[in-house]
């Protein structure tokens, strides 16, 4: 690969202190993000997608969330070792993040303009107030908000959910970050708005060349926007592959299950939907061996005792399954 690696996550382990004990919400997760690339992070609810992204940003809820080990290398510099004040220069400047819930992600008592302008003020202190104001309007225009001169003066409650998510994107992109982490940015929005936001993110990416870590549980969205996909299951990586590979020849039984669970138009109407039987194991008492064993139709003796390692299928495709060669 000639493209340069921008961000590399190595063996990330993140744990939460809960009343019932310590749980590892993310275990041994590694992947890398290249310049301008879009990485998809998929998996069922609770598999640790958000925790992974919050760990990268070091935004875990204190004091219960803690990164136990691993590295997050941005240009070969470990973010996990940075002092707090240097990390503040990374957030919103080199790595930005947008969240699932646009309705509550903005401060209700500050004007839109102020909330965008704050990013400029933090990372480009040389800008004066008038330039910041103009740039904020420009950002709103870029994310496709009509009448930005007027919107900049308004408060979040005067905007719809889709508008607010656009504002969030405007804030995140204000300082032209190298990486945007989008944690289910469209889940709370209706389908047409969802499509518009995806379109917007793609076009902004083309314009700026930033990399995106796109978190979703919607494989359809993955197929549309991602170059590479990381499939997570119960805190671990199940499979990692370029998007075409993954859709054409999924190796992990879980990925296969996810793909066949997508309803297709060719299917006869009113047919029972395909699902993966069973539920995600409780992180408090994980089974020995493979975490997917209780839902896997290929389960065999070694699956119950040994954790599968991430094995190489080819130079870009990795899978964590004892029996991937057979299935």
């Amino acid at each position: 690969m000639a493209e340069e690696t921008l961000l590399e996550i190595k063996n990330l382990v993140t744990a939460f202190q809960t009343e019932a004990g310590t749980i590892r919400a993310v275990e041994d997760v590694s992947f890398s993000v290249k310049k301008g690339q879009t990485i998809g992070l998929v998996g069922e609810s609770g598999c640790g997608k958000s925790v992974t992204s919050l760990s990268i940003m070091r935004l875990l809820p204190k004091p219960f969330g803690r990164i136990e080990s691993g590295e997050v290398l941005l240009d070969n510099q470990d973010l996990l070792k940075l002092p707090a004040n240097e990390m503040q220069h990374i957030r919103g400047n080199r790595i930005s993040m947008i969240f699932q819930e646009p309705m509550t992600a903005l401060n209700p008592v500050h004007r839109i303009g102020k909330q965008i302008g704050e990013a400029f003020m933090l990372h480009q202190p040389e800008m004066d107030e008038r330039t910041i104001y103009k740039e904020s309007i420009e950002m709103l225009r870029q994310v496709g908000i009509p009448a930005p001169e007027q919107r900049v003066q308004e408060y979040p409650h005067q905007l719809s959910g889709g508008m607010r998510q656009r504002v969030m994107i405007a804030i995140a992109l204000a300082c032209k970050p190298d990486i945007l982490i989008a944690d289910e940015p469209t889940t709370a929005l209706d389908v047409t708005i969802q499509a518009q936001i995806l379109e917007l993110m793609k076009s902004l990416q083309t314009a700026s060349g930033m990399a995106i870590i796109f978190i979703t549980h919607d494989l359809g969205v993955i197929a549309e926007v991602c170059d590479e996909v990381v499939v997570m299951y119960a805190g671990k990586i199940a499979e990692k592959a370029p998007v075409c590979d993954l859709f054409q020849s999924p190796k992990h039984p879980y990925t296969q299950g996810l793909l066949s669970a997508i309803p297709k138009l060719e299917n006869p109407p009113k047919q029972k939907l395909q699902t993966i039987e069973g539920t995600v194991p409780d992180l408090m008492n994980l089974p020995a061996g493979c975490r997917f064993q209780n839902r896997c139709s290929y389960m065999e003796a070694p699956c119950q005792s040994q954790s599968p390692l991430l094995e190489k299928v080819n130079s870009t495709h990795f899978v964590s399954c004892h029996r991937w060669k057979e299935i």
Binding site: M57, L59, P61, A84, N85, Q88, H89, I90, R91, G92, N93, S96, M97, F99, E101, T104, A105, L106, N107, P108, E118, A119, L122, H123, M168, I171, A172
Partner: peptide, 14 residues
């Protein structure tokens, strides 16, 4: 604990 504080910190605020 609210979302907008997380947004603010994600922006780069201390």
């Amino acid at each position: 604990a609210s979302d907008y504080i997380r947004t603010a910190i994600a922006k780069g605020l201390s």
